[in-house]
Nucleic acid binder design. Structure first.
Length: 108
DNA sequence: GGATTGACGTGTC
DNA sequence: AGACACGCCAATC
């Protein structure tokens, strides 16, 4: 552990390619945190304060639901950003989530 | 330094 | 299918 847990989370979150999404649990696992998926989400809450903007909109829960959209400037921002990248969002949930899901472990 | 918290995950009812 | 409960682990108060 040379970096803080937060920084590691931010790092992985920034690695998410455009038009793709990942889940908190996947990131946690990629960091070796395993079941500490909550920490990932918690870290993301500070992502807004992180200097290199973190694409938190590309990170959703395992169901592909935009759980953290309320933490953005505006709840609509998250969905808008995703749609901008070609991600289809329906009813606050990502369509074809499994299809566009980006696994950090696949890159790491 | 103990208790609380939390943008989660999985399993049950 | 929707709601509820418990578990995990680190940061913050």
């Amino acid at each position: 552990m040379e970096k803080n847990f937060y920084e590691q989370v931010f790092e992985v979150a920034r690695l998410v390619p455009k038009g793709r999404v990942t889940s908190y649990g996947a990131i946690a696992k990629a960091l070796g945190a395993g079941g500490s998926a909550r920490m990932v989400g918690y870290a993301m809450s500070t992502a807004g304060l992180a200097q290199p903007s973190v694409p938190a909109h590309r990170v959703v829960n395992s169901s592909g639901l935009l759980t953290g959209k309320f933490h953005f400037s505006t709840p609509e921002l998250m969905q808008q950003l995703l749609e901008q990248e070609g991600v289809v969002v329906v009813n606050d949930k990502i369509k074809n989530f499994k299809d566009i899901f980006w696994n950090p472990l696949d890159e790491l």
